[in-house]
Computed example of a mutant assay.
Amino acid sequence: MKIEDIDTIIKGIVGFKGRVHVAFGEPLTAIPDDADTLAAQIDRQIWQLYRLFPVNYLAAGVAAEMSNDKSRQCWQEKLAALPEEAQPLLTKMYAAPVEKQVKIA
């Protein structure tokens, strides 16, 4: 591994990340034999505990009551910084958590 690769990894670990939320789910007491069932149980807890931020609502198109002018401006700047063809992918990535929480609710 090159030195610059290690440096990039270190910067990614200790560098600024913005708003971050860390949560811990309930321990699984009954582990199913089926890996898909186990994965679904873990996914359900992840999405129930996932903290949505204004950018998620903006991307999902439900921003009116969930964001402010600063959030909207920041989102527009994020999109504008990307090539036009990449903007739908970023929007989809940020909107996905909103859609997941709606499905598990």
Rank of each mutant, 00 (worst) to 15 (best):
M1V: 08
M1K: 09
K2T: 15
I3T: 12
D5K: 12
D5Y: 09
I6K: 10
I6N: 02
D7G: 03
D7S: 14
T8G: 04
I9H: 03
K11G: 12
G12P: 06
I13C: 09
V14W: 08
F16H: 12
F16T: 08
F16P: 09
K17D: 11
K17G: 15
K17M: 07
G18Y: 11
R19S: 11
A23S: 15
F24D: 03
G25K: 01
E26K: 14
E26S: 14
P27D: 14
P27N: 12
A30N: 10
D33F: 08
D33N: 15
D34C: 13
D36W: 02
T37E: 14
T37I: 12
T37H: 01
T37R: 05
L38C: 02
A39L: 13
I42S: 06
D43I: 00
D43N: 12
R44D: 15
Q45P: 06
Q45S: 06
I46A: 07
I46Y: 08
I46W: 03
W47N: 14
L49Q: 13
Y50T: 13
Y50L: 11
Y50H: 15
L52W: 06
F53I: 06
P54I: 04
V55M: 13
N56P: 08
Y57K: 07
L58C: 09
L58M: 04
A59G: 02
A60K: 03
A60I: 03
A60G: 07
A60S: 13
G61E: 05
V62M: 11
V62I: 02
V62H: 12
A63R: 07
E65S: 14
E65C: 02
M66A: 15
M66Y: 10
N68H: 10
N68M: 02
N68K: 10
D69Y: 04
S71N: 15
S71P: 04
W75D: 01
W75Q: 01
Q76A: 09
Q76D: 00
Q76E: 04
Q76N: 12
Q76Y: 01
E77Y: 00
K78V: 00
K78Y: 05
L79C: 02
L79S: 01
L82F: 07
L82C: 10
E84R: 10
E85Y: 13
E85K: 13
E85R: 11
Q87H: 07
Q87G: 08
L89F: 14
L90D: 05
T91G: 05
M93L: 15
M93F: 06
A95D: 10
A96Q: 13
A96F: 08
P97M: 06
E99W: 08
K100P: 02
V102H: 07
I104H: 03
I104F: 11
A105C: 09
